[in-house]
Amino acid sequence: MALIDYANPTRFLGLVEKLLPWLGALAALLIAVGLGLVFGIAPDDYQQGATVKIMFIHVPAAWLSMFGYSIMAASSLGTLIWRHPLADVSAKAAAPVGAAFTFVCLVTGSLWGKPMWGTWWEWDARLTSVLVLFIMYLGLIALWQTLEDPIKAGRAAAVLTLVGIVNIPIIKFSVDWWNTLHQPASVFRLGGPTIHPSMLWPLLVTALGFTVLFVTLHLMAMRNEILRRRIRTLRMLQASAVAG
């Protein structure tokens, strides 16, 4: 069976049912191993002390906040160019998961900032652009809830999502372009990571675990959305039968 065959919602649901238990178990295992490394092996920072342990959840959440929006943008292209129903479903399903991880990023950043910077919040470029991303997620979720027809809602949301993608490079490069309180990139940067391997590996394992968790939750939410659309179709058939 070719990969394109899974673009059929029924076949996609079959694949998701098979994959989900494995993905869930893999996510749980990676997060457990990652947290074991964080609290068992990773040393405290020479300046920040144990507070650096917040990094191991804050940084993956920050990456996934952008990953989620990138999934939505790629799916929006699928909606607008190929008009594929699964692309629409993917974009809608990614929004609450992306919003949740963005919320985690903002809250853990604030909890890290207070003891290290002396403030819960600063209106600098990195923090503000991530807050804008969170508001964009909420706006898109509201848009999908407002328009009853999923096709119309999907197209409107796809246009808005693609306009909003401009915020992703702003988030990524804000620490290079402007003088911000937030530290510059220390993992994905030209010249390689500046973080010591004893902290880098626990961070990468935890980030991989949270990424697999994100994919798992996204697929679960896509399954729900496909079922929701089937219910809508059946109700429309029921309504037309009553009217006819």
């Binding site: 002390g49 144990a50 507070t51 959840i57 804050h58 853990t108 909890l111 207070k114």
Partner: peptide, 19 residues
């Protein structure tokens, strides 16, 4: 977890509750 243990525990708790 040092003097700022409350911030560390709160960060992990918030993450657990949200996820």
């Amino acid at each position: 977890l040092g003097p700022h243990w409350g911030f560390i525990v709160a960060a992990y708790l918030v993450t657990a509750v949200v996820v």
